[in-house]
Design a protein around this nucleic acid. Structure first.
Lengths: 352, 352
DNA sequence: CTGAAAGCGCTTACAG
DNA sequence: CTGAAAGCGCTTACAG
């Protein structure tokens, strides 16, 4: 009573002399199949090198997969997150036709409560995967812990919580990024130069700073350079405060020839340079192509900006979850982005 | 005799009081529908903001889409194309489950006949789209012309044939890339410096060179810098020939402080510097993170390499065709890659 | 533990 | 010009 050869699950069923639903049970490791039947089917699957047809599978199941994205919104403070968002949306567009839904949960970087609110929605709405920028460490740990318990995979973007065992981390290699900044600052140095590392940040967004500065200093150690390196911590992010601190610093150290700002707030230092007559205009290095930085890069007050392909970070975060959940592909624990050097001359070709 | 509400094409058919096959004809602009029926259906489609279910569509049609990729193979001469290939394969993996098949047609950069052979296979095997690196201009024009006639969309990767009206060009902005090289070379300049532009290429792979050099020279014009800029064209790519030419040039111009190699062969110049005692070690700038360049970047003989995200070029080329053919999304005519600056300090994070 | 059947939303002959 | 029906390769109740 043999039927003619067919394909896929039906062919397996034919060869094993069982119903296709039994084959389905084996494929998805469901219970309710005798050991002997299971083995027979497993063997045939291997022989045939059977690959399930995702198209049919997704269509029949009707399930739509929801990926939540918990990242900061663009605010007047910073438009940095525009780029990851663009990448996320591009990835979403590439795969939405196949039943993958991207749900944006944006929070305000200045307001940890907004983070918590959005984070709770991840748990309430039953998502299948999560991309998370752990801007508030403790709060983020709470949600990733909850995800782990719920079996929801999560990918860290932009900064990592190594203890939290994410499916993947997609973001910058901080130490090496600071190291490169060290190298770049040497283009401005003379014999008597002093360097200045500036960290402008409220306590809350401060935790990546250390690795960056470590990298920066390591460059000078490795080269056996003995230039003095000062550090300035400014805990208010408004211009008057920054200006006041810088004024003081430059008075004390008139030989500062290179300034390295450890985050995206280099424009505040540039603004200071714009308004202050210094004996020597120091080289200025900072992070991220946010609009205000672009402006000062264009007019020459910022010399280098270091970026980590923020759009691609967004794209790859979504695709990592997609590959894991849909394609069952293995995902690498860490994907470190390249460290891009942006100058006035190439900035036009970096979208952000 | 109204049935209860359903979804998709069936719901449209129900509302229009026609068969679903008629709706299908309208959706795909097929003939055989009366104007009045067509209009009625079109209106309902608009009202419902109907989006066809790609999953169902691809499954039912059973068609598999084949994208051909006509790019150089990795040879002992250069491993540049490893990176685009990696991107192409990553894109292929992301979408192959949905019936998209990527067919690699690799040719030998040293052998235009191999290009023609592979190009002909594009036409013979009836592909649905083509990614092409037009390394041999005339031969490439023949194939793109044929594709145009056959209605096969094609995307140029790495270099463009603007006359050939590709669906898209994905590659470097050459002029600006040379312009940036101009800027970078100034880090080495003194009052009496001379600059040297070196083009090491057989005639066949020579056509992008002009735009790059133009950009390079424009930087100096824009800055009103008057440094002499020499040009050296070397038509043999073996080391002895290159060495001989350079020897001669440096004897004639002992004040050369910056050398710009307009393609990926900077390692040949680095090798020369390695073996030659010059009064001043010039700054050396070149293109592409090929293995031999990596080596000299690491040991300091090459100062900067300029890259254009070759892996992403490959990824985006495939995705452009996919978005056009499958998603019917609009594709931008040109996508210029960022101009990455690679130094010893950040090279590890660029895969190629 | 196993199977028969309906259905996911389309496409594709085929009949009229 | 239009429609009824089979089928793409799965999943999912449901029955036994």
């Amino acid at each position: 009573m043999k039927q003619k050869e067919s394909r896929g699950i039906r062919e397996i069923a034919r060869r094993a002399n069982v119903a296709i639903s039994t084959v389905d049970r084996v494929i998805h490791n469901r219970i309710g199949v005798s050991a002997v039947t299971r083995e027979k089917i497993t063997k045939i699957i291997a022989e045939l090198n059977y690959q399930p047809n995702l198209l049919a599978s997704r269509l029949a199941s009707g399930k739509i997969i929801t990926l939540a994205v918990l990242i900061p919104s663009v605010t007047e403070d910073t438009d940095f997150w525009e780029a990851p968002l663009r990448g996320i949306q591009r990835a979403g567009a590439d795969i939405k036709q196949y039943g993958i839904n991207v749900e944006l949960l944006l929070f305000d970087l200045r307001d940890s409560a907004s983070f918590v609110t959005q984070a709770n929605r991840v748990l309430d709405t039953g998502v299948d995967g999560l991309v998370i920028a752990p801007a508030f460490v403790e709060e983020a740990e709470r949600i990733t812990t909850a995800c782990r318990e719920a079996g929801i995979p999560y990918v860290f973007i932009d900064s990592n919580l190594p203890d939290q065992l994410g499916l993947s981390y997609i973001g910058p290699p901080l130490f090496q990024s600071g190291y490169l900044a060290g190298k770049l600052s040497t283009y401005a140095l003379r014999e008597d130069s002093t360097l200045l590392v500036v960290n402008i940040a409220t306590a809350s967004d401060n935790y990546t700073y250390k690795q960056i500065e470590e990298g920066f200093r390591s460059y000078f150690t490795d080269q056996r350079y003995l230039y003095p390196i000062r550090r300035l911590n400014i805990h208010q992010t408004d211009y008057p405060s920054v200006s006041r601190h810088l004024q003081q610093q430059f008075s004390a150290d008139p030989t500062i020839d290179a300034v390295f700002v450890t985050n995206s707030r280099a424009f505040l230092v540039a603004r200071f340079l714009e308004h202050t007559a210094l004996p020597r205009k120091p080289l200025l290095i900072g992070y991220d192509l946010v609009n205000e930085n672009r402006h000062y890069l264009a007019n020459g007050l910022i010399d280098f900006l270091i970026c980590h392909q923020p759009e691609d970070q967004g794209y790859r975060s979504i695709m990592a979850l997609y590959q894991f959940l849909v394609l069952s592909a293995p995902i690498s624990k860490e994907y470190y982005m390249p460290i891009d050097i942006i100058t006035r001359e190439n900035q036009a070709f970096y979208r952000n």
